[in-house]
Computed example of a mutant assay.
Amino acid sequence: MTQHRSESDGRFSKASAISGLWRHLSGWSLSRLWRVSSALGPQVYRFSKRERFITERNLGVVYPHFSAAERKTLARHSLRHSTATMLELGHAWMAEPDNVEAGILAVYGRDKLDSARAQGRGVIVLAPHFGNWEVLNFWLSGHFPFTAMYEPPKITALDPIIRHGRERMGASLVPTNPRGVAALLKALKRSEAIGILPDQEPDWGSGVFAPFFGRDAYTATLLPKLVARTQARVVTGVALRVPGKGFEIHFLDADERVYSADDVESATGVNACVESAIALDPAQYQWEYKRYRKVVQEQQQLPNFRDFRPY
């Protein structure tokens, strides 16, 4: 009992420190946050060996034509942007809404959402881990009825803080289970917008292998099921960071393959959508995520496996 209470107190203390930091940073300007990110980024690259290793391995797969020096430079820029995203969480979740809105410098492609809803269709926004996706959530939930799946953090004491930050502009968060999928379907049938993370590996049985920058990646198959049952339109949405100034919201046309009833074809289209978003600025993608982990796990089951080993 004493050990359990001690662990619980430790998690609460850690959550308090993290939320206190977010609250403090929420009062900083975006230019100041970027300057701090620029100072911390090289330290993250130097001392966070896991993040550096995964980032550089992923970049080696995705950009094999780059020189080693070019990939290292891109890795450094990427980890600087990832550092900025972490420091900007307080801004997205806790700063005065008018201040967050003022940091959104432009919105491109809003007509894609307005047109779909005018036709009585829902909109599925594919939101990859690019730029600051929490700012994208802020804008979407402030301008449209918006629903997104949500998985509570490992530090449970942070759950109400994160949930409040994401819901404060009107977003509806639903669990990552069949009940949550049912809520997404209902929202789409009401001609509302929903958000899906297209670049997270799903659990085994909930995805298929589809090419991502020429290599198979395990990709969720939720999208074709939602499209088939609602005739929703699909767009890719990102909040592109303009360093030290703010963000540009971009909504991009989806690859037409996302509308296929074939799971592999649709997943291929989803990954192509992520690739198009990354092309806006490759340094702003979160390359430290093990996107190819499951294909390695599967291939390592083979007795003569000698191929791709990115991690």
Rank of each mutant, 00 (worst) to 15 (best):
L126V: 02
R80I: 11
F213T: 12
N137M: 11
L87I: 10
T147Q: 01
F47C: 07
S29A: 12
A283H: 08
D111R: 14
W133A: 05
P152W: 08
D281R: 08
D281W: 03
R241D: 08
F53L: 07
Q284D: 06
T236E: 07
F251P: 06
Q284F: 04
Y45R: 05
P198F: 04
L87M: 10
P152Q: 10
E70M: 04
S19I: 08
A69S: 05
D159G: 08
E88R: 02
H65W: 14
R117L: 02
E256S: 12
L25R: 09
P145D: 11
F146V: 01
P64F: 09
V36Q: 01
E275R: 14
E51M: 01
R11M: 14
L87K: 03
W34K: 02
M169E: 11
A118I: 07
E275H: 10
E56P: 00
W34Q: 07
A193G: 05
F308D: 06
N177V: 13
F305T: 11
G20F: 06
Q3V: 15
V100R: 03
L113I: 14
V174E: 01
K14C: 15
R117G: 01
E96H: 10
E192C: 07
S26A: 05
L30N: 00
A183W: 03
G244D: 05
R179I: 03
P178N: 06
S13Y: 02
R168S: 09
Y289G: 10
K189E: 09
V258D: 02
S78D: 06
R71I: 09
S29Q: 12
A239R: 02
F308E: 03
Q200Y: 12
W34R: 06
G122F: 00
E288F: 08
E248V: 13
I155G: 09
D307E: 14
T83L: 13
F144E: 04
R110F: 02
E134G: 04
H143G: 06
N304T: 14
A254R: 02
E7G: 00
W204K: 15
N99K: 14
G131T: 07
A92E: 00
N58S: 05
T73G: 10
F66A: 01
S29G: 15
G41R: 01
T55C: 10
A68S: 13
Q299Y: 03
H81D: 05
F251Y: 14
R309M: 15
V242N: 01
V264W: 09
G195V: 06
R168Q: 10
